[in-house]
Design a protein around this nucleic acid. Sequence first.
DNA 1: CTAGATGTTAAGGT
DNA 2: CACCTTAACATCTA
Length: 262
Amino acid sequence: MPELPEVEVFRQYMDNTSLDQTIQNVEVKNSLILEDTTPGRLRSWLMGKKFHLTHRYGKYLFAKASQDLCLVMHFGMTGHLRYLRQSEEAPDHTRLLFWFNNGNRLAYVCQRMLGRVGVVESVDQFIHKKHLGSDALNMNIEEFKELMRGRKGRAKSILMNQKIIAGIGNIYSDEILYQTGVHPETRISDLSEEAVEKLFENIVEVLSTAVNTKANFSELPPSYLIPHRYKGGKCPLCGEHLKSLKLSGRTVYFCPRRQQRI
DNA sequence: CTAGATGTTAAGGT
DNA sequence: CACCTTAACATCTA
């Protein structure tokens, strides 16, 4: 479930489990997930080093292990991290194992192999290379308004565009639009200044709420769309049957009563 | 058996 | 250039 909140939770998990332990080995179980590196290079760089600092930007998780290089992880649609105690078996679809000298391991698990792991010189360089926009939880209202200025695209597409705002995907963009009462196909240029401000507030509200609940859908507030986001689901606020439509190849769920087309 | 699933990217079109 | 759609990637499940 790796959009910004999930990745932030992975980051905290890594902080709580995997820092400051000497890496003894790096086991690449499937090199398809490696981007711009090889099992050998990854291994020889990390051997004897420790992860000492993590960072998140958008949907990317970084872990510094030396002065000059940084591990970067992306989780695709199905990736996650799992820290394994000595005797624990690695889960199915483990693609990468970092072995620590205390006998524990950090597993990068990714069922659908759409995730990628690589090595970069710096976070900033990586952001620049990937043309990532502002991190969704690290922008202010003025910055957001500036990003929206002059745009002709649909609200849903703009929220999900990583080159404009980094971190929001299909699930949370639905929630943000629902909380704001904006139809997904609304053109950003058709929103009032107040609506743009409200949209910004809800980006922060929805994402930070999800981070605070450890991205556990069942603990989201009762007014949230996400737990009802399936065929036949009903709006938690008015009971209306949710509608869905396709937008840039993704399924959008929304409440036709609370999110009117303008 | 088929369609679709939280993501990104390339390719093509308007 | 801005914006839109589709397909591809690999795997599992409804």
